[in-house]
């Protein structure tokens, strides 16, 4: 991976400003994504994964949230410097996203065809007479049987798995270079989860796109990703090649996450191996945000946030234990 990354996020800060206080949902996140690779973004609920993803599209919830700092480089251009009009040409065409809940992602009053063709028409590559044929093609690509008939259907007439596929097809409409897939946390049905992973793999196999896969399950990451970034309380605490991180986790939080995976085939819902809760995002502790739960916490962990330090080639972690005392 010596070539320049496709996407590079540097020091991203996305804060939420509710009536009172500040929620530092994303607080200094940096990572890279290369062509064709799959990066897993893993962390507990509420650590800021979805907010990071929405920031890449500049679609953080209005008006509460704002990207306050950072750079997002895509093919040599900083997305944070772009106008809203320019961003609209990037959404769908360069970066697509599948939302956390594909079941409610489709508009209930518009047909599948309308919603697909709308996405295709935005690309502006196709004559309008070809759009229907292209929509059928897309549905066939995500293995929807009887695609031509499905175009006339409304979302409520489709099964859950089918809706997921349609949402996948919409994401593929613009031939994106980056696909962000936010894993459903509500529908933890094993078959649905498996279907979802298979769909993503299929989609990625058809193109050379990069996949940013968001999950809270390290087991799934080990199966599907090339590299992994572990997120805790708005920050990335460890990142590297999946195998390296899995075999030699350097951050105590990563270690706990991996220990919580009983076997790679069973998804986990709770982190029983670590005591306590993740900190409330409106009141992060000083120093390392993990120190209240960390078995190895030292005095300096209470004072300063640790720097990101190398563990091995391409493998880094933000933990004082890696620094000389």
């Amino acid at each position: 991976m010596s070539q320049a990354p496709l996407l590079e996020v540097r020091d991203l800060h996305t804060y939420l400003f509710p009536r009172r206080g500040v929620i530092r949902a994303v607080d200094g996140v940096s990572f890279t994504l290369h062509r064709g690779e799959t990066l897993g973004l893993v962390g507990e609920s509420g650590c800021g994964k979805t907010m990071t993803a929405l920031s890449l599209l500049r679609l953080v919830p209005q008006p509460v949230a704002r990207i306050v700092k950072g750079e997002i480089w895509l093919e040599g251009e900083d997305l944070l410097q772009k106008s809203e009009r320019e961003m609209r040409r990037i959404r769908g065409r360069k970066i697509a996203m599948i939302l956390q809940d594909p079941q409610t992602s489709l508009n209930p009053v518009l047909t599948v065809g309308t919603q697909l063709i709308e996405a295709l028409a935005l690309q502006g590559r196709e004559a309008s007479s070809r759009l229907v044929a292209r929509a059928v093609e897309l549905l066939q690509r995500v293995r929807v049987a009887d695609a031509a008939r499905r175009l006339r259907h409304y979302p409520h007439q489709l099964s859950g798995g089918m809706k997921q596929r349609v949402v996948g097809a919409i994401a593929m409409a613009g031939n994106p270079q980056v696909l962000i897939a936010d894993e459903p946390t509500t529908a933890l049905d094993v078959t649905i989860q498996l279907q979802y992973l298979n769909l993503l793999k299929e989609l990625q196999a058809q193109t050379a796109m990069a996949l940013l896969f968001i999950t809270h399950d390290f087991g799934v990451v080990a199966h599907t990703c090339d590299r992994v970034a572990v997120m805790y309380a708005g920050r990335i605490v460890e990142s590297g090649p999946v195998r390296a991180v899995f075999n030699r986790p350097a951050h105590p939080y990563t270690q706990a996450l991996i220990a919580a995976v009983p076997s790679l085939d069973e998804p986990v819902e709770r982190l029983d191996t670590i005591e306590g809760q993740p900190p409330a995002p409106e009141a992060f502790p000083a120093g390392c945000r993990f120190h209240p739960r960390c078995p190895y916490a030292e005095p300096r962990c209470h004072q300063d946030y640790p720097p990101t330090l190398p563990v091995a080639d391409g493998h880094t972690a933000a933990c004082w234990r890696l620094a000389a005392p």
Partner: peptide
């Protein structure tokens, strides 16, 4: 709602999001 988020993610203009995707639902 989520489908409005998806409409924006597709790259639709705010005008299309509001008048095509939202209004009909809002009129129910």
């Amino acid at each position: 709602s989520e489908f409005v988020k998806l409409a924006r993610i597709k790259g639709l203009s705010e005008t299309a999001v509001i008048w095509r995707h939202c209004l009909r639902n809002a009129l129910i």
